[in-house]
């Protein structure tokens, strides 16, 4: 089977998974106690008629299954309805925030890959060296330290004490400004640290395992330069296991963004999610949970494709 056919097959398999994700998203939110109407009429004296009218307005009087289909019909057109708490279209709300979270997430992922992979390679190649020891210490600390604590620590050191980074997000200009990128660096590092620590160790152990294999001696016996032996032969095989875990890290980065955005008062979807949960803003919560789910599914899809690209045995 060629790589193209494998990709096609894998993409087709994703479709039922996506449908399952919409069901789960809708179902889980519906299972939470209380509905938006309860929230709207809280602390107000409202007659049952008005309450009934509100439920009809949001379609909450229909059977759950019909509610799901109504919602799904909107979802496929990227229409998630209007937010209950501030009456604006959900899509608009999300699109306002999404670029920020994408910026932070991709920066976090880049920081992770750029530091974890080369350090892992060096630590494996020069086992027992200072770099190896340092990476070991970093990994232990990096995995152990909670995100919110690391975020506050970095803010204290780099924003408050050293004044290298701004304390607050720039208020205007959108996501794609240099100021915003600079501001995003600290939250990105905060989120990326755990993933970096994990991937670094994984890269190292995977690399050590591969370096011991016969094909490495064979490549050396062919007279290839050490750089080619490591970067071509060993790296590709070592990356196979790293790629899978890296994809799972995408999920951790997204979930981590919820906490980190609060710590850094970052205008992304993580904070929007927290606020919406507080407000029982069902349409927004559903849209965000689905968005996160889809992101994780796509990351896994990408990982599987990369996996098959790196290891030809997977394709058969």
């Amino acid at each position: 089977m060629s790589l193209q056919r494998y990709v096609l097959k894998r993409v087709l398999v994703t479709i039922p998974i996506l449908i399952g994700a919409t069901m789960l998203t809708f179902g889980l939110v519906a299972l939470t106690p209380g509905d938006p109407v309860d929230y709207i009429i809280a602390f107000q004296d409202v007659s049952p008629e008005v309450e009934q009218q509100l439920r009809e307005q949001y379609g909450l009087d229909k059977p759950l299954f019909m509610q799901y289909l109504d919602w799904l019909a909107g979802v496929v057109q990227f229409d998630f309805g209007d937010s209950i708490s501030n009456q604006r279209p959900v899509t608009e709300l999300i699109m306002e925030r999404l670029p920020y979270t994408l910026l932070m997430g991709s920066m976090a992922f880049m920081v992770t890959l750029i530091t974890a992979i080369p350090t892992g390679i060096i630590a494996a190649y020069y086992r027992g060296s200072v770099i190896d020891q340092a990476s070991r210490v970093f990994s232990v600390v990096g995995i152990a330290i909670p995100n919110f604590f690391l975020g506050i620590l970095l803010l204290l050191i780099f924003a408050s004490q050293l004044n290298i980074f701004p304390f607050l997000a720039p208020s205007s200009g959108g996501a794609l400004t240099p100021e915003m990128a600079v501001y995003t660096l600290l939250p990105a590092i905060t989120i990326g640290t755990g993933a970096t620590a994990l991937l670094m160790r994984l890269m190292r152990s995977s690399m050590i395992e591969e370096l011991d294999k016969d094909y490495v001696t064979m490549a050396r016996a062919k007279g290839l330069p050490e750089r080619t032996v490591v970067n071509k032969h060993v790296l590709r095989n070592s990356l196979i296991s790293v790629v899978t875990v890296a994809a799972i890290q995408v999920a951790f980065i997204i979930s981590g963004s919820v906490v980190v955005e609060i710590v850094f008062s970052y205008p992304g979807i993580g904070r929007l999610l927290v606020n919406s949960v507080g407000a029982r803003d069902f349409p927004v919560i559903q849209a965000l949970v689905l968005l996160i789910g889809v992101a994780v599914i796509l990351a896994n899809l990408l990982a599987d494709i990369l996996y098959a690209y790196l290891d030809p045995r997977i394709r058969y």
């Binding site: 016969d214 094909y215 062919k222 007279g223 290839l224 330069p225 032969h233 590709r236 095989n237 290891d311």
Partner: peptide, 25 residues
């Protein structure tokens, strides 16, 4: 030494399956 390896002196390994890199043709 690299100029000699594989060029003037080459090696055949015991276990061809492990001596070949699975990731390259």
């Amino acid at each position: 030494m690299r100029q000699i390896r594989g060029n003037e002196i080459s090696m055949i390994f015991q276990d061809a399956e492990t001596a070949l890199n699975p990731a390259y043709t």
